[in-house]
Structure formats: structure tokens, C-alpha cells
Design a protein around this nucleic acid. Structure first.
Lengths: 131, 131
DNA sequence: GAGGTATATACCTGTATAAGTATGTACTAT
DNA sequence: ATAGTACATACTTATACAGGTATATACCTC
């Protein structure tokens, strides 16, 4: 991962939101989907993009893929993530993401069999239903 | 200029080198060309890219266009430029650029009629001559 | 093993962008 | 006026990428 690749990862708003969320700790795809309110494909592809460049790591737990920032980060990555966090501190979108994240309880951390609440996960992924 | 646009500007190596150089003060296109050892079109287009997004400003002096970082920068830009400067501090390419810059005397700053030395500028722009 | 859930991937389309060639424009000097 | 210098822009080509639809894969439950 070079500096340019880091910046390439940072130049998409969805990826910025994902990284901002992961700065608060690991999350599974369905929680990201839920918080970002974006379709699964979109979230999944951006995560793959980040992962291919080493900006995030993933592990599998039961049915879920749990993403997190790498434990050992090169200096440039740490610096840029800190900078990002500072830059978005007062941005309404990023703030709202963090609040929304706080209201979810990542039950996978407790070893429970369910990640997202089935009642919510059962919904066919918000896709401009507008009846 | 938003955060994403800033990162878009930062995700090209030539633009990173340009910004790193401008952190040391204003420069004209021919000096940038000289230091970066890149063809004029390339330098000019990257400068236009940066300028369109507000990352650099330009003024005309005699025959030369002199580029500089904006005097009043949004917080996100200042933060990211500082971060960039910190990240490239020990990179051989960026270091060499700065050394090369130091060896040039920006004579336009002294009000002289010539910017680049005519002996060098007269060369038909290094373009893989390989005889 | 049948069906459901969570996630990834293949494929398609439109758009952005990088780099090059050629040309245009603005200014200077003579 | 002519020619040269410094810079920008139009045009072209190749590539990356974002977003969508459809489908595949892996795992779990029963």
C-alpha cells in the first residue's frame, strides 16, 4: 500500500464513511449496510476495493464477514486516518453515521448467533421501494 | 472544494509531487517541468486539474504562469497538506524534488526578465530523445 | 438436502481520467 | 510583422471505476 493507493481509497464518499465507521471498531457488512443505508452490492464492492489495497482486513464469523482497520498500519495510513477523523468531526453525515452506529449493538461481539436483528435483516434491502 | 475533491487531487503521483514542491513556495510551470522532468502538457494539465478544484492558485507574470497554494486554505486542505508533507518527508523522489528545487533560483521572484535559464529552456523539452 | 441468510462476483454501462499529439494563444524581442 | 518562448487546450485512446442487475458461493437451520 503506497500513499497514492491510500488517497485512491479516500476519494470516494462511501469509502470515507466506511473508514470513519471502522475507526470506531470492527463492523459486519450488514451493519455497514444498515448504517450507510446503501445497497449490499455497493457496500460489498467498496469493502473489496479497500481490502485489495490493504486499508481494511476481514475475518469470517459464522455467516458474517467482519471488517476492521488493519491492526498494524503503516505510518502514512495512520496519519491519513487521523487526518480524516479530524476533518469529518463536524460533518453532519459522518456524525450521523457514528450516532447510528452507537444505536446498534454489534451482537457478534458477544458471540451470539445473530448479527443483525432478523426483523430488520429480513427486509429486502431498502431499494427505493416508494410503493 | 470538498474533502473528496481534495483526495481526488491527491491520488496521482505527479500531483503529489507538485503540491509537495509548492509547499516550499510558488513556482512557474517551466520550473516545475524542469524539476519533475515531465513533459509540459502533463505538468500543465495536472496544474489545471488542481486549479479547477481550488488546490492551487495562479498568477501571470510576464511570460510565465506562477502557481502557488491558496493563501487562505480550508481547514481540511491545510490538514491534508500537512499530512502529506509529513508522509513524504523521507521519500527519495519527493526529497530529490525539493533538493532540485533548491538548486534552481526562481529569478522571477527577483523581478528579472527571465524565469528559466534560456540555455536549459531552449532544449526542446526532454522527450525520450534516445538519438 | 432444501431453503434461507450473508456476502461476493460477473457482467454491463456510463463517466472520469491519464497520457500523448497537435495546435492555439498570449506575450516578448527584434 | 516575424519569430520565439511559455503555457493551455482540443482531440484521441486506453484504462479505471462507480453503480446497477443478476447470479454464485458459503454457511446455517431444519
Amino acid at each position: 500500500m503506497g500513499l497514492v493507493e491510500i488517497y485512491q481509497c479516500l476519494c470516494d464518499p462511501t469509502r470515507l464513511r466506511i473508514l470513519n465507521l471502522l475507526l470506531g471498531g470492527e463492523l459486519c457488512v450488514c451493519h455497514l449496510q444498515e448504517i450507510l443505508d446503501e445497497p449490499q452490492v455497493k457496500v460489498s464492492k467498496h469493502l473489496a476495493y479497500l481490502r485489495a489495497r490493504g486499508l481494511v482486513e476481514a475475518r469470517k464469523q459464522a455467516n458474517w464477514m467482519i471488517y476492521r482497520l488493519p491492526s498494524r498500519k503503516p505510518r502514512e495510513l495512520s496519519a491519513n486516518l487521523a487526518c480524516l477523523q479530524d476533518c469529518v468531526r463536524e460533518d453532519p453525515v459522518f456524525e450521523r453515521d457514528l450516532r447510528k452506529r452507537g444505536s446498534l449493538e454489534p451482537s457478534f461481539a458477544e458471540g451470539g448467533p445473530l448479527c443483525c436483528a432478523p426483523t430488520k435483516a429480513a427486509q429486502p434491502a431498502r431499494r427505493g421501494v416508494r410503493t
